[in-house]
């Protein structure tokens, strides 16, 4: 991070929008920081609560008074229900590095799981059954474990049918900082993503705020994995138009 020169007390810059920002709805750029919606950290409610509202909205468990001594509950606090929150309707799928275009990938991948087994960081997992057509194919979920972009790509070497290929770019997507969620844009200090991005020079920090170079970002998702903002401030998107292999 470059340190400012002695007299460089950066005057407030006027926010500007370009077309791309507009298309991507990055309108918060226009708001002055003081006017930004404050960050709120929300915790999953209790398991009973989640089950109740998800499965049988009408039969929400009557909030039965917990066993207590003089108003002090002696019931253990139910565990946090990280795994029972409803999955979103639509979500992006990330393929391991070097994956061919999706139609070729789906056709060629034998669901053998070899790439899953060789990944030293447990980043590759088989898509679960509820994912329908793609169930069993390898995916990467940076929220669980990010791809660390191994130098030798054991996953590609392990792929026998060759739907992961060294001939193709190993980029799996791209990341962006969602500024209105980012701590560095909320008058506090956070430099985690820029410190941990494994690819040199992708995240630059100016005035304490990170910017991702979408051209060189590999989409590994490390930044998303480590971002400690109350709502994850890294938007990660898979590579949209993966090239096909000449067959």
């Amino acid at each position: 991070m470059p340190s400012p020169a002695a007299d460089d007390n950066q005057p407030s810059r006027k926010p500007t929008l370009n077309r791309r920002d507009l298309l991507q709805g990055r309108l918060w750029k226009l708001m002055r920081p003081s006017e930004r919606t404050p960050l709120v950290m929300r915790y999953p409610k209790t398991r009973a609560d989640v089950d109740g509202s998800d499965l049988a909205p009408s039969s929400k468990p009557s909030s039965k008074t917990p066993r207590s001594i003089g108003g002090i509950a002696i019931e253990p606090v139910p565990p946090t229900a990280f795994d029972t929150t409803a999955p979103p309707r639509s979500f992006p799928v990330f393929r391991p590095p070097g994956a061919v275009a999706e139609h070729q990938f789906l056709a060629g991948c034998t669901r053998c799981g070899d790439c899953v087994d060789v990944c030293p960081h447990d980043a590759i997992v088989k898509a679960p059954d509820r994912m329908g057509a793609i169930a069993g194919t390898p995916t990467i979920d940076a929220d669980a474990n990010a791809c660390l972009m191994c130098e030798d790509f054991p996953c590609i070497s392990a792929c026998e049918p060759g739907v992961l290929s060294r001939l193709l770019p190993t980029t799996i997507g791209t990341a962006r900082v969602t500024e209105h969620l980012c701590l560095a844009h909320h008058s506090t200090i956070c430099t985690v993503c820029s410190e941990r991005c494994p690819t040199a020079g992708v995240i630059s920090v100016s005035d304490g705020k990170p910017t991702i170079d979408e051209g060189t970002c590999t989409g590994c998702g490390v930044c998303r994995y480590v971002c400690p903002a109350p709502e994850n401030a890294i938007l990660l998107m898979p590579l949209l138009n993966r090239p096909s292999l000449p067959s």
């Binding site: 960050l39 709120v40 929300r42 915790y43 409610k45 209790t46």
Partner: peptide
């Protein structure tokens, strides 16, 4: 923020 005897949210 407290809901049902549990802290469910925190804000500045």
């Amino acid at each position: 923020g407290v809901h049902d005897g549990r802290v469910v949210a925190v804000a500045g």
